[in-house]
Amino acid sequence: MTTEAERDELIRQLTARVEALEAQAPGDALTLGVINGSLDHTMAALIVAIGAAVYDMQVDIFFTFWGTAALRDPKKTAKKGFMDKMFGVMLPRGAAKLPLSHLQMLGMGPVVIKQVMEKHGAKPLEELMKDAAEMGVRVHVCTMSMDLMGIKKEELIDFPGIDYIGVGTFVDMFSHAKQCWFF
């Protein structure tokens, strides 16, 4: 026979365990990493992000390494030192300038693929970014990549809520997400 006090203690312990589990349970969230920097990989990330947002999932996209160039705004400039300037010249200046991961063909590939995309009603990456913003997708930029490649906040697109983070924040994000994928 269990006494009332033992039962209460058991309920207290179980409640504590359920609360602990609930605190750890992944939310209806998706974390994406964009590292590759090609038009096709970045587009795939944005399409998945928008799809998940349509499902009312919270979507966070972490742009790192070559991925960060997609966030450059070609209309903006920033003051830079020599090395940063060199990187700035070599890196694609925004979403419209990204290369393809396959069939780059000395720059012909992206031209051709954009014509094919238009013909089939596929939105350009810049438009997908706007849709993502409207759907509440959050964009985070890797501060180390920005430092390495000399990318300044002032030259990035106006994406609502865009912020600048390190790996710790990224880990916290994907630890609360159901999935984490890299593109």
Partner: peptide
Amino acid sequence: GTACPGPLLEAK
């Protein structure tokens, strides 16, 4: 005339 994810996004 819109491609993926267009129709789903329009529906939403």
